[in-house]
Design a protein around this nucleic acid. Structure first.
Lengths: 113, 113
DNA sequence: TTGATTGTTATCCATATGGCTAACTATAGT
DNA sequence: ACTATAGTTAGCCATATGGATAACAATCAA
């Protein structure tokens, strides 16, 4: 619901990379550690960590380090913000504001952090 | 429905800029010429044209030049592709595939070029 | 306490991005 | 024919991005 410009900048930028989208997709199946997330990618860890950094600073994911392990999880609200922006555009050009209203009504209560 | 990776790359990258999002938003109110679109921005025309180029090569807009005037319009399907990707992720982590099914059912017939 | 595991920090590098100016082309209007 | 309009092309520049390696820190296990 925010639609803050700089937030949208960083969210869309974060999504504009296949590695980062794959991480989001993986985290959709549940939280995971950095090593677990990095495993499928043929990339040095520091490089991968940059992607995690981009995702985290965009607000798409959060992470917490316990012991030497950092565990990441999705922050649903941020992706919902991006979806909202797109929905607004579609509502606009379809000339059907009711579609947005319906969307908000269907989803507001489900958007947790 | 495509979800082609390189397409998503370029679409999300195109959306990751406030100027380009504003252009999309403006085009939602109807087609417009390059000059009309450029007018609100404090930016040299060649710079602005790069944004138009990014939007067009991402498939988010199309344009046609008649005489010396280039007119741009939205290509709805491409933004719908981005929306679909986000919807898939939400469906995934909400564990509610029915939400995606419902989305597709509601919107497939409306997605023109 | 020694090692292996899991990240992190510090550089470095090539390329992409987003802005600019200058100079050009092509069309429309008078 | 001239002139103004609407884009386009060609460079240039600073910064951001996405990758790498090397060296370090911190924790867990034997």
């Amino acid at each position: 619901m925010d639609n803050n410009q700089s937030t949208l900048d960083s969210v869309f930028h974060a999504l504009a990379d296949p590695t980062r989208r794959a991480v989001i997709q993986q985290l959709g199946r549940g939280s995971a550690t950095v090593s677990e997330l990095a495993e499928p990618f043929d990339m040095a860890l520091p490089s991968f960590m940059k992607h995690i950094g981009v995702l985290e600073s965009s607000g798409l994911i959060g992470s917490k380090k316990v012991g030497r392990v950092r565990t990441c999880k999705i922050k649903q609200k941020t992706l919902a913000d991006a979806e909202t922006w797109i929905n607004e555009q579609r509502a606009l050009w379809e000339g059907r504001i009711d579609r947005l209203a319906e969307y908000v009504e269907n989803n507001l209560s489900k958007e947790s952090s």
